[in-house]
Structures are given as C-alpha cells and as structure tokens.
Design a protein around this nucleic acid. Sequence first.
DNA 1: CTGTTAGCGCTTTCAT
DNA 2: ATGAAAGCGCTAACAG
Lengths: 338, 338
Amino acid sequence: MRNTRKSGKVTLADVARAVGVSAITVSRALREPDKVSATLRQRIDHTIRELGYVPDPVARALVTGRTNIIGVIIPSVTNNVFADVLRAVYDVIRMTDFGIQLGNSRYSLLEEEKLVRLFLSQKPAGLIVAGVDQSEATRSLLVEASCPVVQIMEVGDDPIDMMVGFSHYEAARAATRHLIDRGYRRPAFVAARMDPRSQRRLQGFREETEVQGLFDETRIITTQRPSSVAMGVELFGELMSVAPDADAVLCNNDDLALGVLFEAQRRRFRVPDQLGICGFNDLEFCAVAEPSMTSVRTFRHEMGERAIRMLVSAIEGKRPEEALVDLGYEVVHRRSTR
Amino acid sequence: MRNTRKSGKVTLADVARAVGVSAITVSRALREPDKVSATLRQRIDHTIRELGYVPDPVARALVTGRTNIIGVIIPSVTNNVFADVLRAVYDVIRMTDFGIQLGNSRYSLLEEEKLVRLFLSQKPAGLIVAGVDQSEATRSLLVEASCPVVQIMEVGDDPIDMMVGFSHYEAARAATRHLIDRGYRRPAFVAARMDPRSQRRLQGFREETEVQGLFDETRIITTQRPSSVAMGVELFGELMSVAPDADAVLCNNDDLALGVLFEAQRRRFRVPDQLGICGFNDLEFCAVAEPSMTSVRTFRHEMGERAIRMLVSAIEGKRPEEALVDLGYEVVHRRSTR
DNA sequence: CTGTTAGCGCTTTCAT
DNA sequence: ATGAAAGCGCTAACAG
C-alpha cells in the first residue's frame, strides 16, 4: 500500500502530514536541503520514499512560471548533422533534470514560428533553435522571451541571445580553394535542399572560383528537393549532361558526395584523377569509403555540447562570458581528391 | 499596448473582464464553442486576439492532470532507423496540438527506466517506447500508467498496451534464405551493437542456416560496440581473417553493409559473384549504391505513423480495434547478391 | 530553522 | 447558456 488518496497520488501535503511538519518544509527539504535541519531532512527523505512521493513538475511550473523543459527546434530529424548535435545535447542533459521537447520545423520558417510560439507558451527553461534566418516575427518572439536562447549551426552578427556554430561561407570557400590548389580547373558545385546555409556555401564556392577566374555558372547544379544519396546520383548525372568537362565537384553534403561517388564509379570515372569529389560535414563514412572521401569536417558534437552548456549556465543565472562561439571547420583531404 | 499585468501575462480572467463575462465562459468558448452563444463567442474571440491572450497549458495541466505532451523514448537519436520513425511521428502530430518530448535511452534499460519515470511524472498524454524488452520495473510502470502506451519497432506477445512493428527474427531468416536460395553456401553474419533486436536477427540467421545445414559459428562476427560504416569495414576484415572462405554476408544493418561493400572493393572482391552482401532496413542509399545493395526493407515511416495515430486515438478515447500491428518486411534483391 | 498565508491560471462541479 | 465557488499541487513572501 503505497498511497491512499483516491487518485493514487501522494502529494507534498501527505508527506508533510505523515512527518508532522508543514508542506513548505518538505518542499524545502527537496529543493534547498541546507535550509532544513539534518534530522528532519532525514525523516522527510525517509517518509518520501516510504510513501513513494513524486513531485509534480506541473504544479511547480505553475507557480514558478518555468518548466524544466528545454525546447530544441531543428529543421530535420533525419539529417545526420542535426542528429549528431542532438546526441550531444542528450549526452549533457542526461546529467541534469532537464527534459528535451523536440520540434521539427521541416525547413519552414512558418512552421518554425508556430513551434516557437507553442514552445514559448509552455514556459520552457530555455530554447535552442537552428540557424540565424528566423522570420522577423520569430526573432522578436525570441528576443522578448523570458528564457535564454541559443542559435546553433551558424555564426552571424547580432545573435538573438547566444550562438554557437561556424561560417558556412568560409568553410565552402576553403573547400573550393582545396580543390583548386589540388589542380582542378573546372570545379562544380552540387547541392540539394537549398536552405540558407546551403546558399551561403554556394556563395563561398562562387566567390572563390570567381576570384581565381574559374567560375562557370553551368557547373552549378542545385535543387530545392531534399538531399539524399540518390539525389547525388541524379545531380551528378545532370552535371555531366550540361558540363561534361567538370573535373571536380564540391558537394553540399556527404550524402550527395556519396551519390556522386557511386555514379562516378558506375560511369567508370577515375577518382580522383579524372574527377575530384569533396563532401561536406565529414560524416563517419567519409574516412572509410573506397576511395576515401575528402570532406569539410564540422564539429557537430561539440556544437551541441557547447550550446546546451551555455544554455544551462544561462538558465542557472551564470551567463557564459562568450555568448558567440565560432567552432570553425577543417578541410580533410583524402583520396577522392588528388 | 497588448497587456497590462506586470508579468506581461494576459490571463483568462483578463479576457473575461474585458468582455464582461466570467472566466469559465471564456474557457468554454475556447474548448467547447457550441456551449456558448454565437454572438458571445465572437466577442470573446475578438477580445482574445485583441489582448493577445495565449492559454497557459501548465495551468490547464494542473487541473486536468494531463499535459498535451507525448513522450517518445528511443535508444538512439543518430540511428537512421529511429530518425525515420520520428519523422513520421512529426508528420502526424504537426496537425494536432500535441508536443513531443524525446528521450534517448542510449540502449540502456536503466536509462530507459529513469526516462519512463521522469516522463510519467510529467503527466504525458501518451508514451511511445522502442522495443519489447523493457526492464520489469519499467514494464510495470508502463502497465500502471494512466496514459496509453505504444511499443514500436517490434512485435511480440503480451504488449503492454498497443504495439506496432515486425519480427526481426523472421526478417533475418528470410534474408538468410534469400542468400542461400541465390546459391551462397558459406553465409556469414556480421553485426554490431547487439541489442535485443540484433540478437533476434542473429537467431533468425542461425536457425535458418542450421535448418539448411550451412551453419558455421566461425562465420558469425558480432560486437557490442556501436554500429557504423567503419565498423562494417572492421568486422569484414575480422571475418576474412577467421573465415576467408565466406561467400556471403548478411549484415545487421545497412551501415555495416556499406562498410563491407567498401572493404570488399578495396580487397578487389567481385560482388556479387565472389561475395554476396545483404543489408538490413533498406535505407535510401541501398538502391543507388554501386553495385546496388540487397537489403531487407522495413516500414519505418509507416511504423511511426501508425504508432502515433493509434496513440492519439487512444488518448481521445477511441481505442483502435487492432492494438497489435505487424508491418512485416520485404527482402529487396539487388545487384550485391547474385 | 520552520510555519502561515496567498495565490499561480485554469477547469470541475453544481447552480441558476 | 452562463456563473460561483472550490481547488489542482506547489512555492514566494513574509513572519516568527
């Protein structure tokens, strides 16, 4: 017999009654143990276990005006990049008593806005949102929000609150430079799901090739459709039909790059001599592909970790000194480029 | 000037006062519009917009004893399989006003139990958990839970409540049969992260090869370490060192299979003649790999969709007639097997 | 160190 | 069709 109330619910008052103290004392024993005498604390702890009391976070949230839920809004749950960030988030909050409410904006500013509104109405402890391209409405909601906010994936000027990411523009420029340095003279850019980050990568590719006098619009193949390995196959086919002389391809991500690699093999291209391939993100498989794949390494786990740590610090009132963290990137050369 | 209270919060009472009715009437206008006269309803709606009133789900949850949050507990957020399920979940709940609290049990029964306890204490509207191998404690928590529960990924006897998945044992048996039917006589099994579902796949492989008189323990290579493409490379290397005569390999999942494919290419194996490769799940890339990859298709999106639909129906009091759905599987033959 | 008093914002009776 | 009263379980604020 663990409890008696008809609802099967043991409340703070029940514990208090059993111990013979007031409810607030039990509450204190739970949240600020130092403020309760040691013996009493023990008696309370004992009774709590005996009765099987479990605090009701909802009641607490009503009075404090805050839940212990951290909202995370990302544009895709199937994209490995976000999955890696999310894993890091879980690795950290596992130690805390925060929960994660995950929202999927499906790359839509409107859905993002709805989610922000929804999440905010639930009084989250903090919010993590992807990217820096929120709608005006979303942005002001977030600015006005009474909880800390971290933007991830990218860095930019004027963060809403805190920010951790890297420059997609710079990363793509560096990758383009890598290809050119390796001697490729007709580099192509292949991308799907042209979200703002992809746009900035394209911009990096464009400006670097222009600077080097190697820009050619026909070697830019993009689509709004979702990214996938199959899409890499398709886009490479397209590239070959409009610019068969392309000698290298910078892909917007590693899935596309894998598709390009498969299709290149199917067409008996010699990689990397006849065709150089560079991915983006350096997913785990890049290192072991055959041939192994050049890619731009991004620090996704660290990004999630830093983001959640900054957020938790801010929630606890200790604002981290650096509210804008640029994690950088690293072009990792492997056998798919010469 | 949208609101006046110092907290910046507009409450039901504010709206009621502005309209000149009681709070409960506003509450009704929101949740049971039919019970309020049309004209009044309009005035209320108007005032709500004017004041920018947003209902407080926390206060509602305190009195109703239920939030509108659906808890989802999966063992991994980076595994594509769960990501696909999750995407489906979002595709459906997007239309509703439910939110998703996502928990990551990291393949640990203990962490799963903690998450269930945590989630349950927050009064979820419903719960989705992966697999059928909960700890005894978790199971009884779930059985006693006052919200509907759906187990996904697998089917088994005695569901906690509802269930949608497929038989991993049968699926692996069918894949093994496929290899044998194709003429392979020394099939191997390669697996990482030996969770219960992997164990049952192994069991399926084992029993089918035994029945056909082709079982050989040395051709079973498994590890508890996490699965990855790189791990596929490693395990295939191990297989080749202990059983170099293996002529086919059934992989526990597609990532491993991709690793095996890469390593086989590196070693200049002729796939599929010299070596047949079969993956599991039929991720998107299987169809476009070079050579394209045989795999066991699983219906992950449908699984997530069915699960969340069943759950929502149950939450709304309309229990679906079929509380146990077996989605089956399909061996998809492609060029990586002859 | 411990208690009293008020409510948080909403919905459930039970009336009218 | 509308309302009054009561309270969900907890904690802030102020005593003592």
